[in-house]
Amino acid sequence: MSLLAWAVDRLGDPLAIAGFHSNTRHDVRYQHIKGYSEKWSDEVKARLAALDAGYSTRMGAAIRHAAHYLENQKADKKLLLILTDGEPADVDTSDPHTLIEDARQAVKELDTMGIYTHCINLDAHADEYVRQIFGQRFTVIDNIQRLPERLPQLFLALTK
């Protein structure tokens, strides 16, 4: 993510970075890392480095929250790039299809807003569910060692 953010900053394109996790539908936390008007700085890098995995992945709620920020940006193309290591899940939902469907609905909502979504999934088994959410707009990178190489290439392909 650092490499991609540095490259986008050098290109002069606005970029925001956020993280999220959930602990039931009543506690979805969206974490600010870099805002659109912030430069790629040591402070932003420190926020990114401080990220730690935890809790659950209620993806639909996070997608909708990100859309709130993206819809106010003036841009010819609005891209929400989601980097995740697994499928939508949360401790208060026993049926995984419920959260997969919620994330799919969130993606459809962004489509109507003119926001293009693309998921980069680090789960080797992602094909089982990621297509249900994103259609053809996903990339599975099941070898995390390849992420620094693939992420900038993918971003450039998506922003052409």
Score class of each variant (00 low, 15 high):
41 S>H: 08
139 T>R: 04
11 L>R: 13
56 S>E: 13
73 Q>S: 05
91 V>G: 14
144 I>P: 05
141 I>R: 07
69 Y>M: 06
107 V>M: 03
104 R>Y: 02
93 T>L: 00
125 H>L: 12
131 R>N: 12
17 I>F: 07
47 R>S: 11
152 P>N: 01
82 I>S: 08
52 D>T: 13
5 A>H: 06
77 K>E: 14
105 Q>W: 01
82 I>D: 10
39 K>W: 02
130 V>Q: 06
100 I>F: 01
61 A>H: 11
115 I>P: 02
26 H>N: 14
104 R>P: 00
121 N>A: 11
28 V>R: 05
6 W>N: 15
7 A>I: 05
127 D>T: 10
35 G>H: 13
111 D>W: 00
26 H>F: 00
117 T>E: 01
61 A>F: 02
159 T>N: 08
42 D>M: 06
96 P>A: 05
31 Q>N: 12
147 L>H: 06
77 K>T: 09
117 T>I: 00
138 F>E: 06
45 K>G: 09
156 L>N: 08
127 D>R: 15
8 V>H: 10
76 D>M: 11
109 E>V: 01
8 V>F: 07
66 A>Y: 01
8 V>Y: 09
160 K>R: 14
9 D>N: 15
86 G>V: 04
110 L>V: 00
89 A>C: 05
113 M>Y: 00
122 L>A: 09
157 A>Q: 10
86 G>E: 10
